[in-house]
Amino acid sequence: MDINRELKRHFIGRLVQDGRRIDGRGFDEMREISIEQNVIPDKAEGSAFVKLGNTEVLCGVKMDVGEPFPDTPEEGVMMTGAELVPIASPEFEAGRPGEDAIELARVVDRGIRESHMISLDKLVISPGERVWMVFIDLHILNHDGNLIDASTLAAVSALKSAWVPKFEDEKVIREKSSDLPISKIPLSFTYAKIDDAILLDPILDEEFAMDARLTVTTSGTHLHAMQKGETGAFKPEEVFNIVDTTFSKYKEVKKLIK
């Protein structure tokens, strides 16, 4: 049992009962967001470094040419991976991605894929044979809670900055031929439930105390992905309220995406 975790849990629980958060935020207030694009300018076709409070995520996008999936011959391919590298937290260990990393990558992937952010139909070189593959890789550098939203922001920003290389004589030439075709902007919003309180954008200490977690991804008017986590439960009305908050928060955060 982690001592830090236990001590924080009791403290956070008491604060929340008084209607307060450890960093003074309101229950539906995000931490400060900073986004820097093209931080890996020489090797990655797209990249972004996102700070959500103290949580820091680096996302790199690599483009390559490969075969399309048999069931979508006229679409490019996208893949999302996440690594919880050991530098980000004493709890992360080196090695194959564990279930937390897998869940993180899949929830981020779902939001981008289902919102059709990337126009995959414009990434076809020759149908059924050659398409562009978009690899989105998330590197978690500092874990202070809410990795999902920080990672979605990083992935979306990296994709916004990404470009498609040239493909000549069956070879990829790492020179820009065009911008990566982008349509919608998906953003995720994650909520922690502690007792009966629902907190947007939990920090790590709040995650230690949370009973349940819900992530909602929207592109502004439509919902594209959801993921409930942890062992607690939500009431249907709580979910409906979270959906309402998400739509209003989207408008705020969307402005930061360049």
């Binding site: 439509h222 919902l223 594209h224 409930k228 062992t231 939500f234 249907p236």
Partner: peptide, 13 residues
């Protein structure tokens, strides 16, 4: 109580 909830696709509110 909702104890598992996932979603993917395109839904309006």
């Amino acid at each position: 109580e909702i104890v598992l909830l996932q979603m993917d696709g395109d839904f309006t509110k």
